[in-house]
Each structure stands twice: as structure tokens, then as C-alpha cells.
């Protein structure tokens, strides 16, 4: 029984990491007033870009170097995510296109790109079968050497690849950045009231671009984690599923706080796989349990809008474009 519970916790943490990357990225983005609904697409993009980078490297050399096995997919993933985030920023900040439309289009686009390369990457290199980057996957999965010596505790909490810890560190750093630094204060002001930020001498466009780009890159790491650590270097079309949307739900659930997002992700990760750990469920009951994260999110939305506490509301200018010379 105990071991089942620990196995569940372990699995919940594993499930939570892509969500946490996505949520942290989206929080940074939304704090600038950009509601990036393209995050699910960006996470697909981050995943497939990592796969492409890793594949090219692993197939170009007979004995892949462990460090490069990590660095190359990491960089290519970030480049891929940045590309989509840049499209989003250019369209919504510079051209002031509607953010929702742009975001939804990017999600469709990102998933399409992911599935296109996922399905045809091998044939470009004249191979058949399915993508499987065993060596790269191993490097990403490598845990602390002493983790398995620490018994159940080590297995449950310390047996993860480096991206897991990175996700938590990024969330903590983001929280510190937002609340304790000048740039964080400026970023929050851009999302609350860009006209005020502008009058205070803050470069609204720069902040919107940077936060969307950095947020996109972080979210993309969630996709990378999924394909490299979670599946161990394999790609299946649509395998990432609806985790991107779940990440956006966490942003609301965590009321735009990165530290809360860490625990929310663990919770949502647990709910995501709960049905597997409850024995004897009918298939319809399983679907109902899978619905839980979304139900909880709606409940949180209802509660925060009923309590009307100003600090818990979304950034005031979320979803709006900023025009400077409008009179």
C-alpha cells in the first residue's frame, strides 16, 4: 500500500513537470498582458524541435557525447519555441492582432508542425519505423547517482532527470523576479496598465516581447521534457495530448503565482493519472476523473471572482493591445 502511494506521488511529479514548465512560461507571458493561447502549440514545437536536434546529432556520430546529447536538443528546442513566441509577439504586439485568434492559430500550427516532422523526419533521412533517441533519452533521464541508494525516499523524490529540478528552480526564480526585482515590478505594471507603465518610462513593447519570448522558451521546455525524459526520446503524434491546455488552467488555478503553480502542477499531475491508481474503475468513471482538473479550475474561477480580492484577479490589461498615441 505504502509503495503504491509513493509510486503514485512519483508518477504525479513526473506528470506535473510539463505542466509546470507550461504554467510558468504562461505566467511570465500573461504578466505582460499577453494572453498566449498558443502555449500548447509552443510546447509541441519545443518537443519536436528538441527531437529534430537530437536526431540529427545522434545520427551524425557513432558515439554521441553525453553533454552534447543534452545541449543540442535543449538549444534546438528553445530556438523552436522562440520562433513561435516571436510570431505571436510580432502579430499581437507590433501588428496588434487579436490575441485569442493569434494564440489559437499558433496552437493549431504548432501541433501541426509537431505531427508533420514527427511523422516524416525519418523518411527525410531515408529511414523507416518510429523516432527513438535512446541515447539522448538516457542522458535526459539520468538522475543523481546516489538517488537509488536512499531507499523509498530517494526513489520517490530524487530519481528525476535534471529538467524536473530545473522546472522547480525556474518557477522559484520567476516568483523572486516578479516580486522582488525592479524589472519584475515593471513587467507586472505593463500587464496591469501599459499606459501607466509607458508614462513611467518603461518600454512596454520591449517587456511584452521579452516576456512572451522567455515565457515561450520556458513553456517549450515542457514539450522537451515530455519527449526526452517522459517518453525517453520517442515521438508519437499527438502524444503530448492536452497538457498545454492544462498548463493554462494551472495559471488560473495558481492565481498567477509561480510558487503556487508548483503545487498546483503536482496536484494536477496527480489528478491526471489518478484513474490508473484507483482499481476497478469503469471507463466512464475514468473519464469523469480525468475531467477533475478542469472542474477544479472552473471552481477556482468562480471563487476568485466571487471573493473580488483585487490581488487575485488576472492582470488588468490581459488580452488587450496597447496603442500609445490613442487619444
Amino acid at each position: 500500500m505504502i509503495s503504491t502511494i509513493f509510486a503514485f506521488i512519483n508518477a504525479a511529479i513526473i506528470q506535473s513537470i510539463p505542466l509546470l514548465f507550461g504554467a510558468t512560461g504562461e505566467i511570465i507571458t500573461e504578466k505582460s498582458g499577453n494572453l498566449n493561447l498558443g502555449i500548447p502549440g509552443i510546447m509541441y514545437m519545443g518537443g519536436i524541435s528538441g527531437i529534430i536536434g537530437g536526431y540529427i546529432y545522434e545520427h551524425s556520430t557513432a558515439s554521441p557525447n553525453a553533454a552534447l546529447c543534452i545541449i543540442i536538443p535543449l538549444l534546438s528546442s528553445i530556438v523552436g519555441s522562440l520562433l513561435l513566441a516571436l510570431i505571436y509577439s510580432f502579430l499581437t504586439v507590433t501588428l496588434r492582432v487579436n490575441q485569442n485568434v493569434t494564440g489559437l492559430a499558433l496552437t493549431t500550427f504548432g501541433i501541426g508542425i509537431g505531427n508533420f516532422f514527427g511523422g516524416s523526419l525519418l523518411s527525410f533521412f531515408g529511414e523507416t519505423g518510429s523516432i527513438s533517441l535512446i541515447k539522448t533519452g538516457q542522458c535526459f533521464k539520468a538522475s543523481l547517482p546516489f538517488a537509488n541508494k536512499l531507499g523509498l525516499f530517494g526513489k520517490t523524490f530524487l530519481s528525476f532527470g535534471f529538467l524536473t529540478y530545473l522546472a522547480i528552480i525556474i518557477a522559484l526564480v520567476t516568483s523572486y523576479f516578479l516580486n522582488r526585482t525592479r524589472a519584475g515590478l515593471s513587467l507586472r505594471s505593463v500587464g496591469e496598465n501599459p499606459a501607466t507603465a509607458d508614462a513611467a518610462g518603461i518600454n512596454v513593447t520591449k517587456y511584452k516581447y521579452l516576456s512572451t519570448l522567455i515565457g515561450g522558451a520556458i513553456a517549450g521546455l515542457g514539450g522537451l521534457y515530455f519527449v526526452m525524459d517522459y517518453t525517453g526520446g520517442a515521438w508519437t503524434n499527438n502524444g503530448f495530448g492536452d497538457r498545454g491546455w492544462l498548463a493554462i488552467a494551472i495559471v488560473i488555478f495558481a492565481i498567477w503565482r509561480p510558487t503556487t503553480a508548483i503545487f498546483s502542477s503536482f496536484l494536477f499531475g496527480g489528478l491526471y493519472i489518478l484513474c490508473i491508481y484507483i482499481p476497478g474503475l469503469s471507463s466512464s468513471a475514468k473519464e469523469l476523473i480525468n475531467m477533475l482538473p478542469y472542474v477544479v479550475t472552473i471552481l477556482v474561477l468562480v471563487i476568485i471572482s466571487m471573493r473580488k480580492k483585487r490581488e487575485n484577479q488576472p492582470p488588468a490589461s490581459l488580452g488587450l493591445s496597447y496603442f500609445r498615441e490613442e487619444r
Binding site: 525592479r182 515590478l185 515593471s186 507586472r188 505594471s189 496591469e192 496598465n193 499606459a195 501607466t196 507603465a197 508614462a199 513611467a200 518610462g201 518603461i202 483585487r310 490581488e311 484577479q313 488588468a316
Partner: peptide, 15 residues
């Protein structure tokens, strides 16, 4: 030109 959810001090130091 003030941010509603910020405190007076935060608004003063903004930018």
C-alpha cells in the same frame, strides 16, 4: 497613471 493593485510605494518607484 497608477497601478491599482500596487501599493503607493511600488507605484512611486515604478520605472
Amino acid at each position: 497613471k497608477l497601478i491599482d493593485v500596487f501599493s503607493a510605494a511600488e507605484n512611486i518607484v515604478l520605472g
